[in-house]
Design a protein around this nucleic acid. Structure first.
Lengths: 130, 130
DNA sequence: CTAAGCTCTGTATTAACTACAGAGTCAACA
DNA sequence: TGTTGACTCTGTAGTTAATACAGAGCTTAG
């Protein structure tokens, strides 16, 4: 299968596929005489794995570790679980930070009259000298 | 005040201050004969405004708009409130996305025995052919 | 055989900084 | 006055995870 077809099956842009090859997440595929990349099912599975992991918010480096474990064939369920749990904790932290942010912003902007005068509590809150 | 002092007062790295000058968020300060930047109180206030806004998650471009409104002197409370509300909505969306993510990951990883066998539901979920 | 459509490489861009290298400046102290 | 150490300067490159080209070459249906 050529890169365009892989792209459709994996729901991943062509440039991204080439990018993953360059950073060595995807193995180099065979080429036609003309230089076109030719992929097989195992490339597709691997690419789907990568995309799914990205969608779950794993970084490329997380994924590299996961793939190395899988490639090595020596991974244990525990290895994987540790990575996942760390990631879940990161996500929870982000959620908590964003909630704080939202509260602060909502509080500031609720004081705002929303009229056409040039007095604005939001600006005051941001710009005040202390 | 020299850049190091400004940096301490505004809690902002020196490189970042120079960066803000380069992208024209901060006005160019006067210089000593030797070429050192010399700042005054109004630079400090502006830098604090920028840092505070960044901490609240506004983008540089958001801040540029806010500052232009303030600089123009013609802003209205309503102008500012619209920007803030849009931003609050963006944050709520992000929180909701992250919560979904967290749920999915928690669900997958709770199936994981966490033992030393090479069978792992996390990998299976990511790597399965469909 | 030709034209449309696909793919190639390589480089530049995005956001918001951060991290140097190598040079120059300033202030205090002897 | 000389020197040392701390500070600052410019300019460039790196970070993350792609995305967006230009300009060339390949493939295949008709």
């Amino acid at each position: 299968m050529k890169i365009g077809e892989l792209s459709k099956h994996a729901n991943c842009k062509i440039e991204t596929i080439r990018y993953y090859e360059k950073i060595e997440l995807l193995p180099k595929p065979l080429r036609t005489d003309g230089g076109y990349r030719i992929y097989n099912e195992s490339h597709l599975k691997r690419l789907v794995f990568i995309r799914r992991s990205r969608e779950l918010g794993f970084t490329i480096e997380d994924i590299r570790v996961l793939l190395q474990l899988v490639d090595g064939g020596s991974y244990s369920c525990n290895d994987i679980k540790l990575i996942a749990i760390k990631h879940i904790n990161d996500i929870r932290q982000k959620i908590s930070d964003l909630k704080k942010l939202e509260k602060t912003l909502s509080r500031i902007s609720s004081k705002c009259s929303g009229n056409s005068t040039p007095e604005c509590p939001i600006i005051d809150a941001l710009y005040s000298s202390k």
